Amino acid sequence: MEAVALPTALQLVASGDTGLSLEKRAALGSSLLLLKRDYRFERVWFWGCIQGVSGTYYIAQGLGPDLAAPRSRLYSLNCVEWNLLPPATEEMVKQAELLKGHFQGDPSFEYDSAGVNAEDNERFPDGGKELTITEEKRLVATIEQIDRAVGIIPRRAFMKTPLGSVHENRNFEGLSLMEAKKLSSYFHFTEPVNLKNKTLLEKADLDPSTDFLDSLEHDVPQGSWTIQLEKGCTVVVLRSLLWLGLTFYHVPMTKQYGYLYCGTGEKNLDLPFML
């Protein structure tokens, strides 16, 4: 969610456990503005927090003019001092997927084969003995996983230019209340998969400038999202059951929307058995 809209946004998702005290919120309000200035970002999003055993990682993302370009990710342990995370690689993501258990809260902590299930060790040389990954790398890989799986935007909120860059759609005035209650009105902000499999007839009904992403209605397993009307039916809130702690909000007929993750950074692998 936009750093400038943080106070209002936190109130709209207050029914969830954001884990942010008044002191932390005040610190974020000032430090995120300094972050934008110092790194010369076009905009700064407060992504959320990942709770560890001995500390909590607070995450921010810096963006440039092209919203589809790789984002700069930063973390803080006190909401004041920020550290730039390295870019997430596919190798980091694959290794992070195998790690189980809570984060430690120490960026320099190193994981090895002891943190990997026995059956997964076979996927690494010498039974996983070569697997070493710092918590800092696990952190950025987990953020990447969550963004790919449940980072979402309302339909028509972003526009893709003929050159491939993505920008805010200035004509977007929010979804209607009827639209906002449908999963098909929300898109994954990541490389589309289902869109490529659509037939030419199905694609003919889509606007390539705004319908260039996959909608949530095709998510597997079905039922991995909940939609609720809150604040006297003035706010639509979506929550992910796959990544518990991910909350998305949208105020219909306005440009107010965003998502926040506050959890342990662990995927809910039991979801198929819960539905």
Rank of each mutant, 00 (worst) to 15 (best):
Q104M: 02
R123P: 14
E122Q: 00
V93F: 00
F124V: 10
D120K: 05
E119Q: 13
P125D: 10
G101D: 11
E122D: 13
R123C: 10
E119W: 10
F124I: 15
K100N: 14
Q95G: 15
Y111K: 00
T142V: 07
E119L: 12
A118H: 12
A141L: 00
E135L: 01
D120T: 05
R148D: 01
G127A: 11
D106A: 05
R148K: 08
N117L: 15
L99M: 08
R123G: 12
H102L: 10
F124R: 06
V140I: 14
K129I: 11
E119A: 08
P107H: 05
D126M: 10
Q95N: 14
E122H: 03
K100Y: 03
D112E: 03
Q145F: 01
A96S: 13
F109W: 05
H102D: 15
K94N: 07
G127P: 11
L139Y: 10
F109H: 13
F103E: 14
G115M: 05
M92D: 10
A149P: 05
E110C: 05
N121Y: 09
A114K: 14
A141G: 09
E119Y: 06
N117P: 14
V140T: 10
L131S: 08
E136P: 03
R148P: 00
L139H: 03
T132Q: 15
D106G: 11
Y111E: 02
D106L: 04
K129R: 15
K137M: 01
E97C: 07
A141R: 01
Y111T: 05
R148N: 01
E144G: 05
N117T: 14
K129S: 12
Q95Y: 01
G115W: 04
A96T: 00
E122R: 00
E110P: 13
T132E: 04
G115L: 10
E130T: 14
G115S: 12
Q95I: 13
F124E: 08
D112V: 07
F103Q: 03
L131F: 00
V150G: 09
L99T: 08
A149K: 09
P125V: 02
N117A: 15
R148G: 05
L98P: 09
T142F: 08
N121L: 06
E110T: 12
A96H: 06
G128Q: 01
K94D: 09
L99E: 09
L139A: 07
A114M: 12
K100H: 11
V150S: 11
Q145T: 13
E130Q: 14
E130M: 02
I133M: 15
G101Q: 09
